[in-house]
């Protein structure tokens, strides 16, 4: 079955970053991203310092650079968009390697690229050091609407189950000689998707019945209370506070 399927981003460990309570890490990453985004794009050195800060966190968490860089690839579609900007943006132009590029487009591309990469890197670090389940507990602790946490919880539990069902349906189709070749077969695939939806929907109803039978009245009970000491909070918030100092320097210099 889909063992480990939900944990591809997570890298188990016992470092000082791993052991921080999940909600402090979530708050720290959110604050860090807000600080990065509000930094003026002209202060290019500031973004370098942010990258150094993240590298330091990765060092403490013992996340190897290769692991981090490979997972940064998720950003590629946005990079493609950023690369287009200097070509299509309006305004005064400049010559780079014989190409005529828009100045405002270049700044815009730099802005998207730098802030986006830092944000993704921070999120990858968070995911690498926090199991999915703990992230949800952290979100619950940070008072994210309970319905959203419940939906995410069920996605973890039933994602594998639905993938498995999909795989069985594909095997059943293939066993009867079906092979999707071109547009003519899209109808069959659509019917399979429909059947999968109906099955999942019916399962949802049965799960709800089982939950109501055990006293569910609309919210998940808090089973694992996550708490953080003042020391843990200050350790987690060291990252955004340092970033804030850099940001303020960026505005004043």
């Amino acid at each position: 079955m889909g063992a480990g399927h939900a944990h591809r981003l997570h890298r188990p460990g016992t470092s000082r970053v791993h052991t921080l309570p999940p909600h402090t890490k979530l708050a720290a990453v959110l604050a860090f991203v807000v600080v990065v985004v509000s930094t003026p794009r002209e202060a290019m050195w500031a973004f370098g310092l942010y990258a150094v800060l993240l590298a330091a966190v990765a060092g403490v968490a013992r996340v190897p650079p290769g692991f981090l860089l490979r997972r940064l690839l998720i950003e590629v579609p946005f990079v493609a968009f950023a690369v287009l900007m200097p070509f299509v943006a309006q305004g005064p132009r400049t010559e780079v390697l014989g190409l005529s590029l828009s100045v405002s487009g270049l700044w815009g591309a730099w802005n998207v690229l730098a802030k986006g990469t830092l944000g993704v890197a921070a999120s990858v670090l968070l995911a690498a050091t926090t199991p999915l389940r703990d992230l949800l507990l952290g979100l619950q602790r940070l008072r994210l609407p309970s319905l959203l946490v419940q939906i995410a919880t069920f996605m973890i539990r039933y994602g594998d189950l639905i993938t498995d069902e999909m795989r069985r349906m594909r095997i059943a189709r293939a066993s009867r000689g079906f092979e999707a070749r071109g547009v003519r077969h899209w109808g069959v695939l659509a019917a399979s998707a429909g059947a999968l939806f109906i099955r999942s929907y019916e399962r949802g109803e049965r799960v709800h019945l089982a939950m109501v039978s055990r006293g569910y009245t609309g919210s998940l009970p808090v089973i694992d209370e996550v708490t953080a000491s003042r020391a843990q909070w200050s350790r987690a918030l060291a990252l955004p506070v340092a970033a804030l100092a850099v940001c303020l320097l960026g505005w004043t210099l």
Binding site: L132, R133, R157, L161, L209, R214, Y216
Partner: peptide, 23 residues
């Protein structure tokens, strides 16, 4: 219920068993 996958809806066994008493 008949299908344990309907009955066990929490991410871990412990949380699932705790669900009823916690509720």
């Amino acid at each position: 219920f008949q299908d344990p996958d309907d009955q066990l809806f929490m991410p871990t066994v412990r949380e699932d068993v705790a669900f009823g008493p916690a509720a």
